[in-house]
Design a protein around this nucleic acid. Structure first.
Lengths: 144, 144
DNA sequence: ATAATTCAGGATATGTTTGTCCGGAATTGT
DNA sequence: ACAATTCCGGACAAACATATCCTGAATTAT
């Protein structure tokens, strides 16, 4: 459903936000380990997230990445996707046609309206801060 | 949302079924033109569809591909996706975790339940024959 | 039988995504 | 100032998706 890059971005963002809430700042190595993702590639993903303003980074000793609780209230899934260039999942035609809209629909246009609407709702309304508590108290997990 | 291969497969299947309903049998060249897809690649996609039993083919003069109305009542989107190896869109974890289920959910598991359920419903309940009429009477289109 | 047509399928090419490697720049603590 | 740490960003490599080409096999009409 999402590209691997996007999956890594989701995992990394949640992991960083969770640590930040506990006052920890995570290094690239920390993040790669906790998300079970390749380190060098994770570096690229984190770079994208920082450039897009999703995470903040600091270099040097005690450096690393963070996403403080207040900022985590303003980051939703859509922004994470956009940061890695995956932003228009729910807006492109499922049959790959450019000329597809309500007035000139492809054969599958109306079939997918509800799917896309629900997807858009989730991407726009799911904020990182809401995911952090569940991870912290063990309701959800990220292993593997 | 879907791979290009899958988009081509959707378009090709609908085009063939629509022609079959009018008693026409379409050649590879016909299909590639009507779906605005590359010919040689379309050949591969059609091969997959035939192997999976979605379409039937015949070689030689007056050969080509078809999907008669009766058969089109039994082909849904899920089968087309499976034919090109894209079958598990709605069953894999959105964060890329193998260990993700209701009892051990990833942080996004419950957020996507409705999306996935609705997607599964559409993939399973959308049959090709239902798409043909709309294309025939101009309610929907496939241009570009 | 023969020639024309059309699909089948292997080999190959191109492009994109995913993944690695390394030197440099910034920051920190001493 | 210096050394250690850590992110930044470019270059490169591998894997996969997409796309092309060509030969052969099946079918049909003559």
């Amino acid at each position: 459903m999402f590209s691997k890059t996007c999956e890594y971005a989701f995992r990394a963002t949640v992991v960083v936000a969770t640590a930040s809430k506990n006052g920890e700042r995570l290094t690239l190595a920390d993040i790669a380990e906790r998300t079970a993702a390749p380190t060098a590639f994770t570096a690229k993903v984190l770079q994208d997230l920082v450039r897009a303003g999703v995470l903040t980074s600091r270099r040097g000793p005690n450096g690393g990445f963070d996403l403080p609780p207040l900022a985590a209230r303003k980051v939703n899934l859509r922004m994470i996707m956009a940061a890695v260039g995956d932003g228009d999942l729910d807006t492109t035609c499922v049959m790959g046609l450019r000329e597809c809209r309500a007035s000139e629909p492809c054969p599958l246009h109306y079939e997918f309206v509800k799917v896309k609407d629900e997807l858009a709702r989730v991407l726009d309304s799911t904020y990182v801060h809401g995911l952090v508590d569940a991870l912290n108290n063990g309701t959800t997990h990220l292993k593997r």
